[in-house]
């Protein structure tokens, strides 16, 4: 019910946040607090200090840059869900952000906190992987950029260093492609039991359009987001509908492997068995939004 004692610092800038992180080993960054504060109250996290970055204005922006999107780490789920730029260039992300938790969570929770926390049941990691996002981070060793596919390393584990701060998420424009996110949400927590993000490009053939390129990632039932390359392979050159789509979606079993998560509400077996349905629906929704090149 009550967090253990901790020291509290508020950073005014990215630079100050970096200094405070270096000065206080073991300190935790505090963004929207919607993952960290529950852990503190349950005393599952007992950091000596919190560094509040919630008011660092430079981390808030959502902007179009070089044909892609740059989303500041502090952009909230609600801001992302209603951003015209995100809806146009990364519809799947807006769709996923709009389905997170409930309005209170979406108004406080940030994209940076969401991915840094790397909860396997989070929605955004799979989306960022499917959309080929890169994450800009800064720390004592300077700035670097990490592919979303390399960022998530396990249950609540990332390649972010102890002293590093995530500053923004960059997403290449998906212009012409269709993207979508389909979610099976847990009725209590609202987190993803299964979440599938898809980005699909179609050709403009004379007959039935076929998929020229697909990028699909799944989360919720695995320790970290999984890129579904078997599904993508099976889809290439095929129509994203009917039997062909069903067959491609079924290939997700190969991508998932055997290490599935389950709980009292939905066992690992069940999640694995119905995962193809969600893969199929995500691809169909994405294809429906793709303009034929």
């Amino acid at each position: 019910m009550f967090a253990a004692d901790f020291d509290y610092y508020r950073a005014g800038s990215v630079a100050e946040a970096g200094q405070l992180l270096a000065q206080h080993p073991g300190a935790k960054l505090l963004a929207g607090g919607h993952s960290l504060i529950p852990l503190l109250k349950l005393r599952l996290a007992v950091p000596p200090a919190l560094i509040d970055i919630g008011r660092v204005a430079e981390l808030r922006d959502i902007a179009l840059e070089g044909g892609g999107l740059r989303i500041g780490a502090l952009a909230t789920h609600a801001e992302i869900a209603r951003s015209d730029a995100v809806r146009e260039h990364a519809a799947a992300l807006a769709e996923a952000a709009g389905q997170i938790g409930d309005p209170a969570v979406r108004n406080r929770g940030t994209i940076g906190g969401n991915v840094a926390h790397a909860d396997p049941a989070s929605d955004l990691p799979a989306v960022l992987v499917a959309l080929g996002a890169t994450l800009a981070v800064t720390g004592q060793g300077g700035e670097r950029s990490i592919d979303a596919g390399d960022f998530f390393t396990g249950v609540m584990m990332t390649s972010l260093g102890e002293d590093e701060l995530l500053t923004s998420v960059r997403i290449p424009s998906a212009a012409g492609r269709g993207t979508a996110y389909v979610k099976f949400s847990h009725p209590a927590s609202r987190y993803a039991v299964i979440g599938v993000a898809a980005s699909v490009a179609l050709d403009a053939g004379p007959g039935e359009s076929v998929c020229t390129d697909a990028s699909v990632a799944i989360g919720g039932l695995v320790p970290g987001p999984v890129r579904c390359s078997a599904v993508e392979e099976a889809l290439k050159g095929r129509a994203p509908s009917g039997e062909a789509l069903a067959a491609a979606a079924a290939a997700v079993a190969q991508d998932l492997g055997g290490d599935l998560l389950g709980d009292v509400f939905a066992s690992a077996d069940y999640r694995g068995a119905v995962a193809p349905v969600y893969v199929e629906r995500a691809i169909a929704a994405a294809a429906g939004r793709a303009t034929q090149a």
């Binding site: 847990h186 009725p187 209590a188 927590s189 709980d263 009292v264 509400f265």
Partner: peptide, 23 residues
């Protein structure tokens, strides 16, 4: 459709919070 208190073998309440108990 959603609610149910679940206990494990040892008598621990598994649905011990709103994260697991679906209202």
């Amino acid at each position: 459709l959603w609610e149910g208190a679940a206990y494990d073998e040892s008598g621990q309440l598994v649905t011990g919070s709103m994260l697991d108990y679906a209202l």
